[in-house]
Design a protein around this nucleic acid. Structure first.
Ligand SMILES: [Mn+2]
Ligand SMILES: [Mn+2]
Ligand SMILES: [Mn+2]
Ligand SMILES: [Mn+2]
Lengths: 227, 227
DNA sequence: ATCAACACTTAGGATAAACTAAATTACCTG
DNA sequence: CAGGTAATTTAGTTTATCCTAAGTGTTGAT
């Protein structure tokens, strides 16, 4: 029997910290204070303070000077926030005419205000989508999330044909550029040319041939097959 | 030329104070500290503190020991919050299957998180409704709100026929009861009988004859004509 | 005219979340 | 392995919002 303490509702700040830590620890490494500070646009000292509070609440495992990881409970909450964020983005784009480059900021605030009931109503209204407008997978209401093994376009070999599945950026200008270039998720592309030393690559898309810089190509996560 | 100061975004608390003060001052009287404390479920001392802050921000006119009124700017913000709240309620009921007794709590949180863009998208999606699910008028995006002269059912004479237009309560149990009794806004009713001394009255509605206690009848705001 | 009851404000304290400045720790490099 | 640099934590403030307890103002009833 787990002694589930009665938990105060988390603050907006706490929820954003847990989400950021989830992202930073996706690779298995602990998240550092400075990285976290940069992700949240805060001073490192502020992050140290919040880490202490979240650790005391049992949401983080903190090794001083070594970084933090999420506890099972912290991870559960982070995934719930991720579901909220992505369901909200999906709903706003599908039903309220938002574009994929403006929807992130709105979701960033709403994710802290919606009830579970509302999130599930929105998800149900859309037929329980599996990915959001950026191709990011939406965790299930129970907390499972299927992570698909995607490869960045920047690492696809010349001659290979792939499908863009996901765009790993929340930057509005980049998202607009990608959409204008006709490289949104679902687009089939073939790599025509690659320059060395992190140079640009040329791809053939339905919209025509495109030259894509290395950094941008690294944001375009692709799959070979139908998924 | 008005010297419009650059204003920090208001906090959730401040926004709820302004809304509460708007409601309490609808009759023209200043709002008292204790009444505000009761409306917001806070200690009176806390309200005194917030009154000072909001006054310094130019949102309230405070006469110590006499109460507060909204300034023009405070009123503008209060009406914006009211629009948000009521548009959100309308949208959730119309598009996400909320019932009129559960929608208030959701809107109470969301009203602080939505952008102006989202509010206008929701309003437009519904064809810019003029009233919310409880019959409360929705202020326009410019801040005008048409207040209709309604009479409480509790003051309608025997034999008179009226239409329920608005239910002046956010209490879920009362709202459910009213819906079950078939007395939602839009319903035509005729007063059949009235007992004296704030006693119950009998009304004929399409759903049949109903006995309605005085306090509940006072919440049912009615009109004679088509409005 | 007084005073008790009630309303309101002030005083002082807690908590959350941010900051800057000043330690402290880790670790790489020579 | 000593030192320097970068990362991190600690110390001390600030602001917002709440609280309780204590003091002050208002007012109606005697
Ligand atoms: Mn957020
Ligand atoms: Mn997304
Ligand atoms: Mn509210
Ligand atoms: Mn309403």
């Amino acid at each position: 029997m787990t002694a589930d303490t009665i938990r105060e509702p988390l603050t907006r700040s706490s929820e954003d910290y847990l989400k950021a830590i989830f992202h930073l620890t996706q690779g298995g490494e602990a998240a550092g204070t400075t990285d976290l500070a940069q992700a949240l646009d805060l001073a490192p000292a502020s992050v140290s303070g919040m880490i202490k509070r979240l650790s005391e609440q049992g949401l983080l495992a903190h090794e001083p000077y070594r970084g933090v990881k999420l506890t099972a409970e912290g991870r559960r909450i982070a995934l719930r926030m991720l579901r909220r964020h992505r369901v909200i983005e999906s709903y706003l784009v599908a039903r309220l005419d938002y574009s994929w480059d403006t929807v992130h900021d709105e979701a960033e605030r709403l994710e802290h205000a919606v009830s579970d009931v509302l999130v599930e109503r929105m998800a149900a209204a859309l037929g329980n989508p599996l990915v959001d407008p950026h191709g990011d997978p939406i965790p299930g209401a129970n907390g499972e999330m299927l992570e698909l093994a995607h490869v960045p376009l920047s690492e696809v070999a010349v001659g290979d044909a792939v499908v863009v599945r996901r765009v790993d950026s929340a930057d509005a200008a980049r998202l607009r550029y990608i959409a204008d270039a006709g490289l949104v998720p679902g687009t089939a592309v073939t790599v025509v040319d690659r320059q060395p030393f992190r140079g640009p690559m040329t791809v053939r898309a339905p919209s025509g041939e495109r030259i894509v810089g290395h950094d941008l190509a690294a944001l375009l996560l692709c799959s070979r097959g139908p998924r």
